[in-house]
Design a protein around this nucleic acid. Sequence first.
DNA 1: TCTGGGGTCCTAGGACCC
DNA 2: TCTGGGGTCCTAGGACCC
Length: 399
Amino acid sequence: MLAGLTPPAPLPRRIAHLDMDAFYASVELLRYPQLKGLPVVIGGGRRRADSVLAQQENLPVAEFPRLGDYVGRGVITTATYPARAFGVGSAMGMMKAAKLCPQAILLPVDFDEYRRFSRIFKSTILEIAPLMEDRGVDEVYIDFTEVPGGQREGGRVLARLIQRTIFERTGLTCSIGVAPNKLIAKMASEFDKPKGISIVHAADLQSRIWPLPARKINGIGPKADAKLQALGITTIGEMAAKERAWLVEHFGRAYGAWMHEASWGRDDRPVVTESEPVSMSRETTFDRDLHAVRDRAELSAIFTQLCEKVAEDLQRKGYVGKTIGIKLRFDDFKIATRDQTIAVHTADARQIRQAAGQCLKRVTLDRRLRLLGVRVGTLARPGELADSAEMVDTTGQLF
DNA sequence: TCTGGGGTCCTAGGACCC
DNA sequence: TCTGGGGTCCTAGGACCC
């Protein structure tokens, strides 16, 4: 080490997780302020264009569709806080939700609108802090570490600025957790929802993280949680009290070791600002279960449409893929997948349809089908394949 | 009257090559 | 003829997340 050139001590990592509050529902309330304070849920299968809502922003409250009138398949994607008070929550089946709160107002999803607001809040963040990781339409991680002011009050000052600026630009609120890493920040953003800011330091592990249910760890889902419960473990602290070897014994080498690290609040994953897609897919659940033979024509038409949509998605975003796959969900909810890697990358609907059709022939179709999906994986950008021996066909024409 | 749609990553076995 | 690695690709299923 050269004398006088001691490198500055690295700043402590401060990572934020930002989560928009009841995002879809909040965007809808911007359009329909007359619904503020009422139980409102977003979900269902109907398209906005088909409903009484199309272009009628001044609709009186009494004329909005009600959850109790809904018939069909689907789940709640978002519920306002007043609706949550009735026990209605996201991912809940519509019919079950309708029993809990039939008077709730039901709005169909409008993804284009949510994406529009998503772009606005994300670009707002990027103007303030350049290292942002996209985690879906309503969530991001932000690296505060090197941002001017990012260390003040553990990140609270910057979090307040971001929260306020997003609100000024969109009228939408969010909750932010700031912690030494993504794992803890993700948990912290939930501490004080809605409109919350929570600052967590490494020293708070025992008091604020260990009492939480194990299921609160991002990566511990229903299966792992049930298994933990069966082993007598409920909280993160109880997990942390177990030997690493014990967790490995019960959950496997990789997952067990990760669980041990997570329970001790350790996570060194960086905030990743860019990533390439791995696959693109389209799937649909039918209004009623379809029979492979009796409903052949209907199934075939849907199948072709799915292939056309994936092809459109690929072309619009500038990708080609060469692993073509299908997904089926039967009436008993069992899932089957088949895929096939073809010789040449493609984004052509007819080629996708052809390969997917071959996949379909490899499945025994003795049950009614509930869902059909088409997936294209092993993606590449056509330009990056140009100098390889492979001939890329994005048009369906032979050359 | 159950349970959407769009993703990622991991595992594990078999084929195939060196 | 038998035995044995390692490495990569392909496929199917499953857990998990938003």
